[in-house]
Design a protein around this nucleic acid. Structure first.
Lengths: 161, 161
DNA sequence: CTTGAAGTGTTACTTTGTATCATGTACGGA
DNA sequence: TCCGTACATGATACAAAGTAACACTTCAAG
C-alpha cells in the first residue's frame, strides 16, 4: 500500500477514481470491524456508504433523509446513532466547524491525529495527516481537533469568473 | 509587559487574580476598538464583561439570559450579534466543540493562531499560543481551529474522590 | 433455548442559530 | 441646524441540530 506524500495536494482536491475510494474504504471498514468485533449493521454500513459516496461533509439530517428514502429509518436518533458509531470506530469524523460528518478515507483503527482542510468556496474537505500541535505540559490531551478554513488549489486558481 | 512561557501550565488552570484579568482585558479591548474605530457599544461591552467574568465558555443563550436579567436584550439575535462582533474583533473566540464563546484574555488585534485546551472534567478552557500546524502546500489557509480535549493538571492529579 | 447485551424504532423535546423587517441613533456634510 | 446614510438594536418567526427516554427486537454466548 502506498503512503501519501504529506506535502502533496490532497487527493480530495484533485480528480480521482471515486468509486475506487468508496470500495477501498468499505473493504477497510469491513475488515477493521471484523477484527475488533464491532458490528457493522445494515444501517451503519449504509450510512458509511452514503458518507463515502457523498465524498463531502454531510449533516446528520442529510444522511437521515437518504436513509428515509431507502426505508432504513426516519428519525434523528437513527442517524445520530449510526454516525456516532462510525466516529467511535474511526470510520468517520465529525467536522465541528460544519456540524457535519465525513467518511475517513483511510481508516486505520488507530486514533490518528488528522487535520481537515475546508474549502470555503467549493465545500470540499480533505483529511490530511498531522502531528499533534505543540502544547504546554501539564495538560493531558485525549483528543485533538484541527480544522483549517481557506481555499483549495482549484478555487484559488480559478475564482468564480 | 511579561510574555507567558509557552511551556508553563496556563494561568486558566491555576488560581489567579481574576478581577485583574477582567480589568486588563477590558482595557485592552477599549484601546483596540478606539484604535480601529470599531464601536464598543453598551451591549457589546457588557457581553465582553460577562464572558470575562464567567471566565469559562458560555453558550449564546447563557449570555443572553444574563443580558435579559439586566434589561439589555432578550432575543437571540442580540446575543449572537454582539458575540459575532467580539469574535470579528478578536476579543472573543468561539469554541466549536462546545458551541460556546470565551473571552480572549490577551486581545492583540492580530489574528493570532490560538489553541484551546478544554478540560472535560471541570470544563475550564485555556487559550494558549500555537503555531499553525504543518499542512500540505496548495491549500490557502485563512483561519485555523485547534481544540484539544483532555484533563487539566488539577483534574488529572485529584480525580473526583 | 434462555438470557443478557447491544441495536433499532419512536415520541417528544431541548438547544442552537438565522432570515427578515421595523425602528432607533450617531455623525459628517450641505 | 437639519438631513441622509450607515450602523446598531428590537422583535417576530423560524430553521437546524441534537438528545432523553422508553418500548421492542435481534444476536450470540452459555
Amino acid at each position: 500500500m502506498s503512503k501519501a506524500d504529506p506535502e502533496a495536494t490532497p487527493r480530495e482536491f484533485l480528480p480521482h477514481d471515486h468509486a475506487h475510494c468508496v470500495s477501498d474504504a468499505m473493504a477497510a471498514a469491513e475488515s477493521l470491524c471484523a477484527e475488533s468485533g464491532a458490528r457493522l449493521t445494515p444501517v451503519r454500513r449504509r450510512v458509511l456508504e452514503i458518507l463515502l459516496e457523498g465524498h463531502r461533509p454531510m449533516g446528520a439530517y442529510d444522511v437521515l433523509s437518504r436513509l428515509d428514502a431507502e426505508g432504513l429509518g426516519s428519525k434523528p436518533p437513527v442517524a445520530y446513532r449510526a454516525l456516532g458509531f462510525l466516529v467511535d470506530q474511526g470510520l468517520a469524523h465529525r467536522i465541528e466547524r460544519l456540524n457535519a460528518f465525513i467518511a475517513c478515507p483511510h481508516p486505520s483503527g488507530q486514533d490518528h491525529v488528522a487535520a481537515f482542510l475546508i474549502c470555503r468556496d467549493c465545500g470540499t474537505v480533505a483529511e490530511v495527516p498531522s502531528a499533534p500541535p505543540p502544547l504546554p505540559a501539564g495538560f493531558q490531551v485525549e483528543q485533538t481537533t484541527i480544522e483549517a478554513v481557506g481555499l483549495c488549489t482549484a478555487c484559488a486558481d480559478g475564482p468564480a469568473t
